[in-house]
Design a protein around this nucleic acid. Structure first.
Lengths: 200, 200
DNA sequence: GTCTATATTTTGATAGAC
DNA sequence: GTCTATCAAAATATAGAC
């Protein structure tokens, strides 16, 4: 078995490694350049994989976009699991906002990584926009649970309002290239969360 | 002067007519399909102008995009002039929100006409994203003036928050293809405007 | 001013050597 | 499994007849 180093688990590791590098590169490039402007060559270069080799891992560009959406879903689930460690729903929500504010420089450069992707996919006929909507719904449902736990009967509406505020301030932060916009809106949202706990 | 019908003011009218049709078609197509997905052929077809003729009016695709931004600026100025007819700033702001809610079906299909454009342009290197930012600033400045007239010292921050809420709910309304999201958020924002007038 | 035909470039995707 | 070379289609832009 002189081929033992090149076959077996070695191949699997290489395969997974490249596939994951391509997915990570896709997430980054789609965020920075958008779906339509990003070419397969861009992604291949960012992943340090030859262009022609991309098709061994992903049959079409859409499959790469789908993999990027999946990666966003995984990140989101991990973030939610982390937030759920906190005992009080108010603190969980405020920790979510803090995370947004921490990413304000990236938002100023390229907007919300998932919001801009979702927005762009909504202009396409295929089903990838529905996949993105599913991911967005995970965050919305989590937010609703927090507000319900705080005793709000309008939990869904204010969860929608919170996520909308984040998506909107991401767009403005990006449009004006001003991370301070996100910081100030974050402070306002945290005060708002506190006020919701005391009000009816 | 056998050519009198084809030269002189007739040509100017035709020229202006086609240019304006192309601009209007660009606005519509860029909204529906996005900048990168929309081809010059798409715009030409929507304007009922032969593809090759487009270049007589616009030297590049970017010039067409710029014209579309200019058209948005004009629409915005017209809307502001109309809102300014109302005597009270609260009513002007609530009329703005009503207008957003009225357009909810279009938002569900394609998002905010200007927000999605601005978001996409921010992913490009050229200066068109700065032009879009100028237009967005017109609305922001107007909102700030209304809140200041209401006696708010935090006028800029809440103007940013209001526009962000609209941009964000447009994105969610589009993502979930649900115009009702915009309607409910509109109601919430109107209650919020009222509460600002009574609070400090 | 208008339009057809076409040049040029880019991009998604494939064939086939190694 | 990897990679080079290349195809085919689409898109921007131009040339030149009318």
């Amino acid at each position: 078995m002189t081929d033992s180093k090149r076959s077996g688990s070695g191949e699997v590791a290489a395969r997974r490694g490249k596939r994951e590098r391509l997915t990570a590169a896709a997430v980054r490039m789609l965020h920075e350049q958008g779906v339509e402007k990003t070419t397969l060559a861009d992604i291949a270069r960012a992943a340090d994989v030859p262009v022609g080799n991309v098709y061994y891992y992903f049959k079409t560009k859409d499959e790469l976009v789908e993999a990027a959406i999946g990666a966003h879903a995984q990140s989101l689930e991990a973030m939610i699991a982390s937030l759920d460690q906190l005992p009080a729903p108010q603190d969980r929500l405020k920790a979510l906002i803090s995370g947004w504010v921490e990413q304000r420089e990236l938002a100023a450069q390229f907007g919300c990584p998932f919001g801009t992707l979702s927005s762009e996919l909504d202009k396409r006929a295929d089903g990838l926009d529905r996949t993105a909507a599913e991911v967005m719904r995970i965050l919305l449902d989590w937010g609703e649970r927090q507000f319900r736990e705080m005793g709000r009967t309008d939990a869904r509406d204010i969860a929608v309002a919170l996520i909308a505020s984040y998506q909107g301030i991401s767009l403005l932060t990006n449009t004006f290239r001003d991370p301070e916009l996100m910081a100030r809106e974050g402070e306002r949202l945290e005060r708002w969360i506190d006020s919701l706990a005391t009000e009816g």
